Amino acid sequence: MKITEQIKQPIAHEMELFEKKFYEAMSSKVALLNRITFYIVKRKGKQMRPMFVFLTAKMISGGTINERSYRGASVIELIHTATLVHDDVVDDSNRRRGFFSLNALWKNKIAVLVGDFLLSKGLLLSIDYGDFDLLRIISVAVREMSEGELLQIEKARRLDITEDIYYEIIRQKTATLIAACCSLGAASVNPESEDVEKMRRFGELIGMAFQIKDDLFDYTEDSIGKPTGIDIKEQKMTLPLIYVLNNCTKQEKSWLINSVKNHNKDKKRVKEVIAFVKNKGGLTYAEQKMGEYREEALQILSTYPASEYKDALSLMVNYVIERKI
């Protein structure tokens, strides 16, 4: 059994029910909108976000969840989908997970409007049922994701990112959404308890490890045995590179910065950068940091009693670090 199937097993029933509820939450009187939302549902990914919501809720409640848990999962999925649709427009991207993006099929104007529609649907779903605590958690996440993206754009122009700024960017851009899922799960079954903050931190730690793992993919072999170097080509500052920039000679530093800024399309030069980062211990350092986040996340889990939901969350922590894609 694939590890993702194993993680999903204790909440298989909830995930099935969630899909129906999520599709209902997206419905509209406008035929064009329904056609587009049907397309969105059809191309769904691994659905990690609702999985986090349900596993956290069930671990904390001892196995029962309520309508608030389903609404929380639907709201986060609606709002997350809205941000993805808008991202594709911002990045002028034509594909997402092997499917055409909405803007590629229906043009930017429609894609932006669909994103707005999904966002308002998410907000209304919370307001209609008075789930203001859940709405606050999600709204903070959306604000932080936008700030993280803008902070990255601001810093990337100068390639002067310190390790602390890098952590702040990935905390906002990537970790804040997983943190919101886990705190949502806790808040849906045990509002205003210390579990809400504990699980927020747990999700944040997983998100940090997840992003560092993504950074490492740039330096590891792809399916045809070649390091990808995509981040270098896009001038993205990742942890292995930041570490090496801060731990090499002045001469090496200016060569690195010059390579990333001015020679990022030169395959031979990108290969040299990858080799240099590896030799200077950049990957080892990033792996060590990722391991620290994993340990702290597992430490939080260890404070909860044994259950299949806790086991699934432990699997999820390890999956994030050991995944191959």
Rank of each mutant, 00 (worst) to 15 (best):
D311K: 14
G63W: 04
Q6F: 03
L118H: 10
L239I: 09
N247D: 12
V89T: 09
M199P: 08
V140N: 14
Y309V: 01
F38P: 00
S254V: 15
K107T: 15
E197Y: 13
A179K: 13
M48V: 15
I127R: 01
N258R: 12
K267H: 01
S254K: 15
R136G: 08
R97Y: 07
V196M: 03
A156L: 07
E144N: 06
Q235M: 14
K271V: 02
N94Y: 08
A141Q: 10
D231P: 00
R294V: 09
R201Q: 14
D116N: 13
Q47T: 09
L32Q: 04
G62F: 05
V90M: 13
L124N: 10
S27A: 12
L313S: 07
M199E: 10
Q299A: 15
L33R: 00
V53Y: 11
I76K: 09
F54G: 10
G62I: 04
M48A: 13
K21D: 06
S146G: 07
Y39W: 02
M51Q: 11
K155N: 08
K253Q: 14
E194P: 01
K233S: 09
Q152L: 01
T303P: 03
K46M: 10
M208A: 04
E147W: 00
G115Q: 05
W255D: 14
A175P: 03
S93Y: 06
F117W: 15
L135H: 10
V85M: 06
K198E: 09
S28A: 03
S259I: 05
I138W: 10
